[in-house]
Design a protein around this nucleic acid. Structure first.
Length: 261
DNA sequence: TTGTGTTTTATTGCCTCC
DNA sequence: GGAGGCAATAAAACACAA
């Protein structure tokens, strides 16, 4: 960029910058002046007292063709003003500029840049929020997937037992597809297959079922206590699938709550 | 002291609104 | 069409490690 950027540029679309954007009337500094000036550099972080003491000197000694930072006092006031309203109406701009001893253009530029910084930060915050929500959903999804797998293997195992029981009862060798739990004997109702009221479930593998289910879904323990005729009993879950559904709904809801709170 | 990365101030060009 | 906002960018000022 050209060295005269602090002077009025007629080509600019914001033609309200008529003269030096910085106030200092001290005129062009030589290379020597610039070197002297660099030795006067104010540390970026210093106490407010230091600033109050040396701000004037700092500003008076700077050459006008150099970009210079606002004092902490100025920034503090601008920040306070930004807090109350992040947009700048013309009247407030003029007032602030007067109060701070800056060009109105400088004030509006500061607000512009401040809004940009705020937006960047906000995007960062939003990103982190979304990321943690995503992570939580992912972990919920994984655990549901595990549960699903576990329940499927239980169904397979229990179906095998039912099949064996039928075999011994009828003395028949089952068709090959009857061994497939998915294509089990259609004569057996779904409720009967899953019902814990079955003697097979209660006597042959009660421990296995109880243990495994307790560890995964403590909330559906009643499933093991109701009999076949309680299938529609409201004291239990109403029905077995209802119990499972509740658990899944719970799991999902938890994920969503965790997501947005 | 110097090289490098970050922050701040300022410009430019485009867009929208009145 | 002018004013003001925003995104992209330049460049000075500053921090900090080597």
């Amino acid at each position: 960029m050209e060295s005269n950027k602090f002077f009025f540029n007629p080509s600019t679309s914001h033609g309200n910058m008529f003269f030096l954007t910085n106030l200092n009337p001290v005129v062009q500094g030589s290379m020597i002046n610039m070197e002297e000036e660099s030795s006067k550099r104010r540390p970026f972080f210093c106490s407010p007292d230091d600033l109050l003491y040396d701000d004037v000197d700092y500003y008076d000694d700077q050459t006008p063709d150099k970009k210079r930072r606002l004092t902490h006092e100025q920034v503090h006031l601008l920040e306070k003003s930004f807090e109350t309203e992040n947009k700048l109406e013309p009247e407030r701009k003029t007032q602030l500029a007067k109060k701070l001893g800056l060009q109105p253009r400088q004030v509006s530029v500061w607000f512009q840049n401040r809004r940009a910084r705020w937006k960047t930060k906000q995007l960062e915050r939003d990103f982190n929020l979304l990321k943690s929500s995503y992570d939580q959903l992912l972990s919920n999804y994984d655990s549901i997937l595990k549960d699903n797998h576990h329940l499927r293997s239980q169904v397979t195992s229990l179906a095998g037992k039912v099949q064996a029981k039928e075999e011994t009862a009828t003395g028949q060798v089952p068709e090959p597809n009857q061994l497939d739990p998915v294509n089990m004997n259609p004569a057996i109702k779904t409720e009967d297959r899953l019902s814990s009221g079955s003697a097979v479930l209660d006597e042959d593998a009660p421990h296995q079922l109880r243990d495994s289910c307790d560890s995964y879904f403590p909330s559906i323990v009643p499933i093991h206590h109701h009999s076949g005729q309680d299938t529609n009993n409201n004291n239990g879950c109403g029905n077995d699938t209802g119990c499972f559904a509740d658990v899944f709904v719970q799991g999902e809801s938890f994920g969503l709550w965790g997501c947005w709170t």
